[in-house]
């Protein structure tokens, strides 16, 4: 069993690096990370990057957010729209084995400008 969520976020337009604040109609807060419930997996099924040139890093912490490791980078070369989706398999899977497994999304830009990301994620126990 699982829950699908569509998540939207954007760069702040004024900093060349930063962490996305995540918005969704599935939840009411705007966290800058997701703590995966213990025993579940977070699957990212698709990501759309729209706007100015931008690298989007998918980052994972195993220590409750103190240290993050980048597990995937999505690169938008120039102002455009980039859709990443793999047929019948997620573009990234992060498993949670403790209460300290976090996922974060960060941006890196050469010139600060507004870029939007939209993701379909799934939180699942299989």
């Amino acid at each position: 069993m699982s829950d699908l969520m569509i998540i939207h976020a954007k760069t702040d337009g004024s900093n060349t690096t930063g962490t996305f604040d995540l918005e969704s109609d599935a939840f009411s807060n705007t966290p800058n990370y997701i703590r995966i419930p213990k025993g579940f997996k977070l699957k990212i099924w698709s990501m759309s990057v729209d706007g100015a040139a931008c690298d989007v890093d998918i980052k994972v912490s195993r220590d409750g957010g103190t240290n993050y490791t980048t597990v995937r980078r999505i690169h938008l070369e120039s102002a455009d729209n980039l859709d990443i989706e793999k047929k019948s398999r997620p573009i990234s899977i992060i498993s949670s084995k403790s209460d300290n497994d976090y996922v974060q999304f960060a941006w890196i830009q050469s010139t600060a400008a507004e870029t939007h990301i939209t993701m379909i994620i799934e939180i699942t126990d299989n």
Binding site: A26, F27, P31
Partner: peptide
């Protein structure tokens, strides 16, 4: 109990 950090509907 909500074991995530998301304030879920």
């Amino acid at each position: 109990y909500n074991d995530s950090n998301l304030n879920v509907y």
